[in-house]
Structure formats: structure tokens, C-alpha cells
Design a protein around this nucleic acid. Structure first.
Length: 312
RNA sequence: GGCGACAUAGCCAAGUGGUAAGGCACGAGUCUGCAAAACUCUGAUGCGGCGGUUCAAAUCCGCCUGUCGCCU
């Protein structure tokens, strides 16, 4: 067995305390943090994405954070490319790489060494497919997929998720290969990483939801509305436009809804996001879960995390 | 005190005699180039309470309770 590169991953739902824990761990173990967060990558989207400030980072280098203007799009494939380079670089400097973030797809794609096809993404093709979906519905697209790639058509016909069906067709049209073939190819290389995975969760879901609600209030008092006005007034990419925190406040800013209603919506959307994150991470049996509400203090939680790392 | 309206799942809400639509939330799940996204599954032997009419009532009648409005 080859020598694998040791990395630590810290995952969990939003507001579970990933930032605080990972900074302390990185300080102790001479690490650097690679953020695996699809929204913290953007410049100027600081409050809504709970991006740590200099004080919170405590001098620990953070990568892939706040480096992209919101009008630029980003994706898993770009993330895995960027993160691989960073891991190599950090390791070369004899530091320990930490993968920290709540975007499960990014974390898993990186750690499982998923290889994406080196296709040039063809916007025209996907735009055309999306327009066809708008006009004709999903049926014709599903039938077309059945002709070229029966396997994935079969698989996708259960949930009939337009995004995935469109992507499957787009992939075939731009590469001439089926997404089913690509799926198999993407996992052929063994991962070069040996990850110790730490997951933050709560045994009482309500406690997590309380924290989320309070954090939203806190964001508002720190100027979330101003940030929202700013962000919404400039062009957004399809990626950045999905961030939770601005679109929910937009109706208030434009005078179409009350602030209370919008804030309620924002809290609810954040809670639902956290729930989806938990669903995603729960299926990874390699994660060592720490239930934040079962510890009396941060120090106890921290010690438990250190133990997990030492054992691994 | 009088008159009137309303009372259906956690919330909103269809349904005026024939055996409880739908939406949202909650919960569970899916997940390979926009993933803080998109999608799938899931709830009332029950329609404020008690009686009555009827083969049959959430739907008609009476009384009670509650909410809201108007009047004195």
C-alpha cells in the first residue's frame, strides 16, 4: 500500500461550529485550512456565508475563501482541481491540510478522488436543453435520454429531476459519451488521500435550529441588510445567486414584504439547508461524529476531536 | 346584552348530502461540472362539542363553546 497523504476533514451542518474547531485543531497540528464551501469562495459575501474574519482565523492560513467575484460561476470540478493543488502545496511545506466545509458534494468528490471529464462545458447546449424543458416539459428529454443512455434514463426516471436529466443529455451531446460511462471512469483511480473525518452534529436537532435562528439575528445586527443590498445590486453568477441570505431579503428591500416575514423565511431556509447537509453527511460511515450538545465546554469537544485524530 | 359571520392535519385552505383536494412547514431520503441547488417519499376512520333529521352529514336543523365583526 502506497503512502497516502494525510488530511483532516471537518464537516457538518451550518452553524455547528466547524470554523472554531478547525482553527484550534490547525493551530495545534500546524495545519492550513482549505474551505470546502460553495459560497464562502465569493468576495463580498461575508456576513451571509458566515465567513471567518481575521480574528477568528487566528493566523491560520485559509484557502479558497473569498477569492472569486460573485459574477463568476464555480463548480465541483473546479473545486477538486483547486483543492488538489493546494493539498500538494501544503503537504510539500510540511503542513497538515484541513478540509473544512459544509458542501458535502465538494468534500466527497475531493476525498474520493472523483475524476471529472475534461470536457469544455458548452453553454449553448445546456441552455438549449433548459429551454426545451421549459417549453415541452421533462418527458421528451427523458425519452431522448432513453435512446442514447438507457441506464441513466432508467435511473433518473424514478425521481425525474430535471437538472440531472438535462445534465445527462448535455454530457452526451458535448462529449459523445454517456454519463453512465463517465460515472464508472470517475472512480477508477484510488484516492491518494487518507482522511480522518470529523463530523459535528447535535443529538437534539432543536439545539442546532436555535443556534441557526440566533445566528441569523446576529448577522442582521452585523449589517446583513447592507451586504444584501450591495450583493443584489451587482451581477451574480448562477452559483452565487443561490446563496441563502440575499434572495430571502430581496422582497423586503424592494418593499414587497415585511422584514419579519423575510427574516422568518431566511431562518427557515437555513434550517432546511442544515437538515439537507445532515442527510448528506450521515451516509458516510467513515465520519467520526461529535455531538456538540453532549459536551460541557469547547475544550472537551476539542479534546475529543484531538483523540480521534491521534487514533486515526 | 342584541345581531351576524366563521370554526376542516402544526399553519394556509378546497369541499353545501354520498363516503376528506391542494399548498407550506415538519420528518425521512436521493445526490458525480450551477449542490446554500434540484428532486423523491411521508400525515385526518377525521372536519370545535353534544344531540337530531336521513339509507347516507364536514356538508341540513337545534343547543353549547370559541374567535371575529357590527349594534346598544
Amino acid at each position: 500500500m502506497k503512502n497516502k497523504i494525510k488530511v483532516i476533514s471537518v464537516v457538518g451542518p451550518t452553524a455547528s461550529g466547524k470554523t472554531g474547531l478547525s482553527v484550534e485543531l490547525a493551530k495545534l497540528l500546524d495545519g492550513e485550512i482549505i474551505s470546502a464551501d460553495s459560497m464562502q469562495i465569493y468576495k463580498g459575501m461575508d456576513i451571509a456565508t458566515a465567513k471567518p474574519d481575521d480574528a477568528e482565523m487566528q493566523g491560520v492560513p485559509h484557502h479558497l475563501m473569498g477569492f472569486l467575484p460573485p459574477e463568476q460561476t464555480y463548480s465541483v470540478a473546479m473545486f477538486t482541481d483547486d483543492a488538489r493543488c493546494l493539498i500538494a502545496d501544503i503537504t510539500k511545506r510540511n503542513k497538515l491540510p484541513f478540509i473544512v466545509g459544509g458542501t458535502g458534494l465538494y468534500v466527497d468528490a475531493l476525498l474520493n478522488n472523483i475524476r471529472f471529464h475534461d470536457e469544455e462545458r458548452n453553454e449553448e447546449v445546456s441552455t438549449e436543453l433548459r429551454e426545451r424543458f421549459q417549453k415541452e416539459g421533462i418527458e421528451p428529454l427523458l425519452e431522448e435520454l432513453l435512446q442514447v443512455d438507457p441506464d441513466s434514463a432508467q435511473r433518473l426516471s424514478k425521481e425525474r429531476n430535471p437538472k440531472r436529466i438535462i445534465r445527462a443529455l448535455e454530457f452526451y451531446k458535448t462529449t459523445g459519451k454517456t454519463i453512465t460511462e463517465q460515472l464508472a471512469l470517475s472512480r477508477t483511480e484510488e484516492s491518494p488521500y487518507k482522511a480522518i473525518k470529523i463530523g459535528l452534529s447535535f443529538s437534539d436537532r432543536e439545539k442546532l435550529y436555535d443556534r441557526i435562528n440566533k445566528r441569523v439575528d446576529d448577522m442582521l445586527s452585523r449589517g446583513l441588510l447592507e451586504e444584501a443590498r450591495q450583493v443584489l445590486s451587482s451581477p451574480l453568477s448562477q452559483t452565487s445567486a443561490m446563496a441563502i441570505g440575499y434572495k430571502e431579503l430581496a422582497p423586503y428591500i424592494s418593499g414587497e414584504a415585511s422584514l419579519d416575514d423575510c427574516v422568518e423565511k431566511l431562518k427557515r431556509e437555513t434550517r432546511r439547508y442544515a437538515k439537507r447537509q445532515l442527510t448528506w453527511f450521515r451516509r458516510d460511515k467513515e465520519i467520526n461524529w461529535l455531538y456538540v450538545d453532549e459536551y460541557n465546554s469547547f475544550d472537551e469537544l476539542f479534546d475529543a476531536a484531538v483523540q480521534i485524530i491521534n487514533k486515526g
